[in-house]
Design a binder for these strands. Structure first.
Lengths: 259, 259
DNA sequence: GGACTTTCCAGACGGTGTACCGAAAGGATC
DNA sequence: GATCCTTTCGGTACACCGTCTGGAAAGTCC
């Protein structure tokens, strides 16, 4: 099997082509079941604990039987990822009459919530799989910026950057609570112990004056856990304001501020 | 060794405390050398091919000898990451008299360039290690937004979001060329073969109308490879424009655009 | 020269993804 | 109903991974 055939096989699996011909021994388990078992395990334990042996055991099936539905472990994760995006693509495209700013904010929230339900999507470094639901998600983001008065390249970039912004912030935010769960201790206990040893022994207030000033000014105070979401809303709001400036100035304005 | 001691050991390594007491058999290799070998290998082959056996072989040393300088593989990556950030922290803080917008744009570029030299930094999902150089980098980002007229929490969020924006776009952008290198084929050849099979057999123009329209409008045209950088400049510019709106409106403005 | 301290490193252990390949099971054809 | 054909099943095996173990080696200190 050369690279070309392997690529086609990969895409066939993502797009659901070439499902059983009806002949031969029937599969004891469906591809849906395999993907669902993988998602369940990744949701509960993280991607690191998603081994083929574990998934097979969850399904009560031999390990190698998984490979009839999946080309490899990475292929399984790709299928899981595309499947997960199907959760939000149903109501992601801008509504009729909806202002583009509202639509974009709504999409950012939907993506953020999806990452909250399936944080493992943020774990795999490579690009998103080119599956039908991932493409539907991307299409929805592109649709928002299509007819608001930007040049085509700027529309495309705006959509990609909005996705990247949400993804980047989500990764920053989720990573610490993932780490806390991985080490077994609660998030609060984890940070309490880190802070106890860190700020006294290693941190030098003179070496990091900006952080220190912000700290004493209350810049890192978090009223509650949901405050993590505030940073998303603020960042997305600021970014969309910048896009709005470009829209109103004819598509490529430099906006306010210094040169 | 309980968790507390393990954490202190981890931080000691990151901060360079507790280096050799002078007694006992001297180490054949320094911690600097181990970290440098790890970075060299990760730069060339990616994080996936960074095995302890490989690093040890590169240094001509037994595998377990690495563990005198490093607590684990993750600890090695943490050291490598902190070491890499030292490349840019020398000239990252805002200059005297520099407009905050220029400083922020300069920092975004520096971070982007660093990710270009060491793409593996983008691979590990957990938060950045709390090492001296990572903190220096963060301090520089916080410093930019300190005295521009935002509330403390908004300043902190602005700095974090700018970092997340650059990181998110860098990950989106680098991942495809990483994949191309991993599979051995060139970037152009990779996409040529993907496109050849994909757009004809799987992509449905009616199912993804926004992407299709943008495609025919030239929204995905890239004049040259460096155009990847254009999306960063545009996104950062838009985001900073949004921050500027908030600065001028007194710190929490909703800005232009819809509700 | 001994005591002490630290590093070195071969070997082993349990884990991973997955290639191999004969056995099993159902449809198609006679 | 017997046979062939096609597909899946899954035990075994292999290479590779991170890292624990523990005795040997190589320095400093008294």
């Amino acid at each position: 099997m050369d690279d070309q055939a392997r690529l086609e096989h990969h895409l066939d699996l993502l797009w659901g082509h070439g499902t059983g011909s009806g002949r031969g021994r029937p599969a004891r388990t469906s591809r849906e079941q395999v993907v669902a078992a993988g998602i369940a395990r990744a949701d509960a334990e993280g991607l690191a604990d998603l081994s083929m042996r574990a998934v097979a055991a969850d399904l009560g099936v031999g390990v190698m039987s998984l490979y009839t539905h999946v080309e490899s472990r990475d292929g399984l994760v790709a299928l899981m990822t595309d499947h997960a995006f199907a959760e939000i693509t149903g109501d992601l495209h801008p509504h009729a009459g909806e202002h583009w700013r509202d639509a974009a904010a709504r999409q950012a929230r939907a993506l953020w919530d999806l990452y909250g339900r399936h944080p493992w999507i943020l774990d795999h470094g490579s690009r998103l799989p080119m599956g039908p639901h991932v493409l539907a998600m991307e299409d929805a983001f592109f649709a928002v910026f299509l007819d608001i008065g930007l040049a085509p390249v700027e529309s495309a970039n705006a959509a990609i950057a909005l996705r990247s912004l949400v993804t980047g912030i989500a990764r920053d935010s989720r990573s610490e609570q993932d780490e806390a769960r991985r080490t077994g201790v609660g998030l609060d206990d984890h940070w309490r112990s880190v802070n106890a040893v860190f700020w006294g022994r290693y941190f030098d207030e003179r070496r990091y004056p900006a952080m220190t000033r912000l700290w004493y000014a209350g810049g890192f105070d978090r009223d509650d856990v949901l405050e993590e979401q505030g940073i998303l809303e603020r960042a997305v709001g600021a970014y969309l304001d910048g896009i709005a400036v470009r829209v109103h100035s004819g598509g490529s304005g430099q906006g306010t501020g210094g040169a």
